[in-house]
């Protein structure tokens, strides 16, 4: 009996180890960008590795969720599979960016852009599928709020990132660069629909964290574009990389919360 109690007391800690792990990752990233602990040369390679690892961690998490829902046989399975595929492409982008950084061969556009933009398309598709799957209508006031916020965000992103590009000679690099603010705007608008519609039920929490991840990614990306145009971006300890890193951590957290939710429900159904 005492042993059983001991096991029961140990279980919550064991079950939440991954939450502590994610918190530790977030603390580490904050420490890294605030204290800049090592020299720029090795730090830029290490940062690249961290981004590959973070994006790589998202793949099994969302892959596992997709598997739970029978991959493409169900709507949630399709959404999770598409997200997982998006993370595969982003991981490939981070890996190729790391290789290009190490080889000092960064060009505009580069192979990493192909993977990043393809990944964006997958993520947008997944968000779009989820938006379509929510059978909840907008209240008129919420709808007006969504339209107003969407227009505001589009105007801000266009004026920060797109307008300066229009003054340049239009080449392939410029066209590719314009793809990012466009996709960021679409992601933010879709994320807002999910936040505004998906408010009730336990599933709202992991979705909110996922949406936060997308918002951070989009914000980091818009900031990066602006800094790059102004010539202020450096490949190491850049503050605009911090929201991108935290965005990936939010994705991992969201996937973990989804898995925990369905696992808990399965256990409670079995107990009943």
């Amino acid at each position: 009996m005492t042993e059983q109690r001991g096991a029961a007391a140990e279980k919550p800690l064991v079950r939440t180890w991954w939450l502590y792990g994610i918190a530790a990752l977030a603390v580490f990233e904050t420490w890294w960008y605030v204290f800049k602990p090592i020299d720029a040369g090795p730090a830029s390679v290490f940062e690249g590795f961290v981004f590959v690892a973070l994006s790589g961690l998202c793949i099994p998490v969302f892959g596992l969720l997709a598997r739970q829902f029978g991959f493409t046989s169900t709507k949630p399975g399709q959404i999770m599979s598409t997200l997982a595929l998006g993370f595969v492409l982003w991981c490939a982008a981070e890996a190729s960016w790391l290789v290009l950084t190490v080889m000092d061969q960064i060009t505009n556009p580069s192979i990493a852009d192909v993977f990043w933009l393809a990944g964006y398309m997958m993520q947008i598709l997944a968000l779009l599928m989820n938006v379509r799957a929510i059978h909840v209508g907008f209240k008129p006031s919420v709808f007006i709020l969504w339209i107003a916020l969407s227009i505001l965000i589009a105007v801000v992103v266009i004026s920060i990132d797109v307008a300066p590009l229009l003054t340049e000679t239009v080449g392939l690099g410029t066209i590719v660069s314009m793809g990012y603010p466009f996709f960021d705007t679409v992601i933010i608008i879709l994320a807002l629909v999910i936040v505004l519609k998906f408010k009730s039920g336990q599933v709202a929490k992991p979705w909110a964290v996922l949406v936060l991840g997308f918002l951070l990614t989009a914000a980091g990306d818009v900031w990066y574009m602006y800094a790059d145009m102004m010539g202020e971006y450096t490949n190491v300890y850049s503050p605009m990389d911090y929201p991108l890193a935290i965005g990936y951590i939010a994705f991992i957290l969201s996937g973990g919360l989804f898995i925990r939710l369905y696992r808990k429900q399965r256990a409670s159904s079995r107990d009943d």
Binding site: F69, S73, Y262, R266, S269
Partner: peptide, 13 residues
């Protein structure tokens, strides 16, 4: 339910 719960959960109902 397949669009709301994983099959492993449905069979435990």
């Amino acid at each position: 339910l397949r669009n709301y719960m994983p099959i492993e959960q449905i069979v435990t109902l």
